[in-house]
Amino acid sequence: MSTIFRAAVPQPASTSELGPLENLPGTWMGTGFSLAELPDHEGGSPFFLRLNATQETLTFTEIGAPILNRGNLQDDIVFRGVHYLQQIADAQTGEALHVENGMWLYVPATSVPPSGPTLVRMADIPHGDSFMAQGAPVADVPGAPEIPPLDSTPNGSVFGDGYFPPPGTELPPGIPDEALRDPAVLLRRALKEQTVLNTTTLDVRTGPDDVRNIGFVVENANATSVRAALWIETVRRPDGTETLQLQYSQHSILRFPAGPRPDPAKQIDWPHIQVATLIKQ
């Protein structure tokens, strides 16, 4: 007589092992705003400003097993994380604007290097960009977050501040004028009429060698840095029930050549900014 063995479906880990990431698994949906200056060689202009009101779906799935990293100068560490898929479309036309997949990891404290618990965000974008951003979490702070401003002004020796905003700039319907200079006003506006009970902050940024791009991107609109903050908020509704809300701001730098290479004096750094307020479904 033969015995048949059936492999069991892996049991999900307790979300408490995800630390500050524990509320991320699931699907989040909402709206936001994207500001990006893009090169325009075909159009005969150095750049053009693209502004979009956005609709977004952001999905997190827990990585189904512990992640073991073996130590040489210290004992092994074990940590957890989540996969994510981000999909952003124009709120008016439905045109796809951005897709990104990656992971968020929660790494325990280490002795080599000496560090407290850290966050890692690893991302891939189909334009030909990858990055790794790191930071430290701040979990379960009472009340709403203090959301800092985001400066959308370019920095460069050729055009400088006087080039922004370009003449004739029009914001999408529903986006206030002040969001052009500081898109984070949309996040603060969303919080004004809300009762936020507590907030977990996930704040990460890239280091000098943490962004990688294909050759075309490097030569035409080189992505050089990324910093992002996610605020996971417990919100009390007017009826007394609670829901989870995720707000984020992301500030990337795209470096454009404004003259023949390799003249570093003829470059301009344009911020690419994304903000959104999403509700867990």
Rank of each mutant, 00 (worst) to 15 (best):
T54A: 05
F47H: 07
L278E: 04
Q194Y: 00
D209M: 11
G71K: 07
P142K: 02
Q87W: 02
I77A: 01
T54D: 08
F216L: 15
Q86A: 10
T31P: 00
L35I: 11
A89H: 12
R189T: 13
P183H: 08
L51K: 10
R237S: 10
Q11L: 09
P20Y: 05
Q11M: 10
L51F: 01
W28E: 01
Y163I: 11
Q87N: 09
F164R: 06
H98N: 06
A223S: 04
P126V: 11
P108A: 06
D76I: 02
V120P: 00
V107P: 01
G102L: 07
V9N: 12
G81A: 07
G215H: 13
G43P: 00
E62M: 15
T57V: 13
L202G: 04
I268Y: 00
Y248R: 06
V138Q: 11
S252M: 15
G156M: 08
S111Q: 15
E37N: 11
L18D: 08
T277G: 09
I4A: 14
Q247H: 02
G162K: 07
L97I: 05
P142A: 03
E100P: 00
G168E: 12
R70A: 13
D75S: 15
L197R: 09
P12H: 07
P108H: 03
G26Y: 08
G259D: 10
I268G: 06
R189N: 15
D182I: 05
F256H: 15
N222D: 15
G215T: 14
L150M: 14
R80S: 14
N220Y: 06
S130F: 07
P66R: 03
R261Q: 13
D177K: 14
Q245L: 06
T54E: 07
P142M: 01
P66G: 09
F216T: 15
D76Y: 01
G19F: 00
P208Q: 14
V217D: 10
M103H: 12
L186A: 07
I67R: 12
P20V: 08
A65N: 09
G207M: 08
P183W: 02
I175A: 06
L150T: 11
P20Q: 06
S2I: 14
H127Q: 13
S34N: 05
M1Q: 05
I273T: 10
G32M: 09
V82W: 07
D151G: 01
G215K: 11
R121W: 00
H41Q: 06
A221R: 11
I4H: 14
G174R: 06
S115Y: 05
Q92D: 12
G30T: 08
G116P: 01
F131K: 03
R261N: 10
Q134W: 01
N220R: 13
Q250D: 12
D182P: 03
F48L: 10
P262N: 13
P46E: 02
Q92K: 14
F33R: 02
T15N: 09
